[in-house]
């Protein structure tokens, strides 16, 4: 079916809906396609598509950024993924720390950490199930890690319990599912469709979800079977299991969600423990006008923020959602009208 035909089918299904529904696309990659093709505008008024907390850069708490900035300023060499450099901290970003002489390097792929010049660096690691195995691999090679890794289910459950938003179904992240497997979502409590990232795949996901919502069936459909299998990538999961353990984690604008993060099992490879003396005096304060927290929860849209496009742009971001290519605010800005 072409995109236009699928939109027509969604319009047909819409007639059977008794009330308006809210579907959340969890992953920033999905949000990008949704915005790139203007899918939100093309859907019937009753079908709301909202963005969720699936951008790893965006959900990284201010205190984690502040901690790594402090390590860098204290002379500890850092390596991290490019986007993390520009996430604003309380006093400065890692990029600012770098222009003050701190040794912070960008890596594009985790294996670059194994180069002799990088081995001594602390790896500031972020990401969900998709990228955790790479960090687990580095831990197995003895690299020290500052982990801001998170897992996907706890915030989604927290959102389902949040009285400020009612979610009727999820477009589930394809890449997370590739690693974690279909089974990750089995006790979600609302319908979900695992989707690929093309515009047709997302529209198909919306179609399937609307059908499930109409018949009130809370099942999970794998609509990305080319790469997502029931059990996921078992080798990757084993590696994570072996080197990392669950911990409480702080989410930007949301606060601590119990057992929603992952940290190194070995204390000597855990930068938070290894450098706790340096980190104990770091004070963090979130920029109070930034509404990244509510945006990550799908409660507010980027355009609801008074900083959006004015004080906060990709060149000069005030909140993390404006930094990352997968952040709702940057995506909204990129495809602004």
């Amino acid at each position: 079916m072409s995109s236009k035909q699928m939109l027509a089918k969604i319009a047909e299904l819409n007639k059977q809906l008794k009330k308006s529904i809210t579907i959340m696309e969890v992953c920033g990659g999905h949000t990008n396609t949704v915005m790139r093709y203007g899918i939100r505008d093309e859907l019937p008024e009753n079908i709301n598509l909202v963005s969720g907390p699936g951008c790893p850069v965006c959900v990284t708490a201010q205190e984690d950024v502040d901690n790594v900035v402090e390590l860098a300023l204290q002379g500890i060499p850092i390596a991290t993924y490019g986007d993390m450099l520009r996430v604003p901290g309380t006093k400065m970003s890692l990029d600012d720390a770098r222009s003050q002489g701190a040794d912070v390097t960008i890596i594009y792929s985790a294996d670059e950490m194994l180069k002799p010049e990088n081995k001594k660096r602390v790896f500031f690691a972020v990401g969900f199930e998709t990228t955790t195995p790479m960090t687990a691999f580095l831990l197995s090679k003895g690299i020290t890690v500052y982990s801001a890794h998170k897992i996907m289910i706890p915030p989604m459950k927290a959102l389902l319990d949040d009285p400020k938003i009612k979610i009727d179904g999820f477009i589930l992240p394809g890449h997370v599912s590739t690693v974690a497997g279909e089974e990750l979502w089995k006790n979600l409590g609302v319908p979900g469709v695992i989707s690929g990232f093309g515009e047709e795949q997302i529209l198909h996901g919306v179609c399937l979800l609307t059908e499930l919502i109409i018949i009130n069936e809370k099942k999970i459909i794998n609509d990305y079977k080319e790469v997502v299998f029931k059990e996921g990538n078992t080798k990757a999961k084993e590696l994570v299991e072996k080197t990392m353990k669950l911990c409480d984690a702080s989410w930007r604008g949301v606060g601590v969600i119990p057992q929603s993060g992952l940290e190194p099992k070995e204390n000597k490879l855990n930068a938070k423990i290894k450098y706790k003396e340096i980190l104990k005096n770091v004070k963090s304060k979130e920029y109070k006008e930034c509404i990244c927290g509510d945006i990550l929860k799908g409660i507010k849209k980027p355009t609801d923020c008074k900083l959006f496009g004015k004080a906060c742009t990709p060149e000069n971001p005030k909140g993390a959602c404006m930094v990352s290519e997968e952040g709702s605010c940057q995506i909204e800005w990129r495809y602004r009208k």
């Binding site: 072409s2 790139r36 093709y37 495809y335 602004r336 009208k337």
Partner: peptide, 10 residues
């Protein structure tokens, strides 16, 4: 002009 609609290329 995309397959679905129209957007600005910034």
């Amino acid at each position: 002009l995309t397959k679905i609609g129209k957007r600005i290329l910034h």
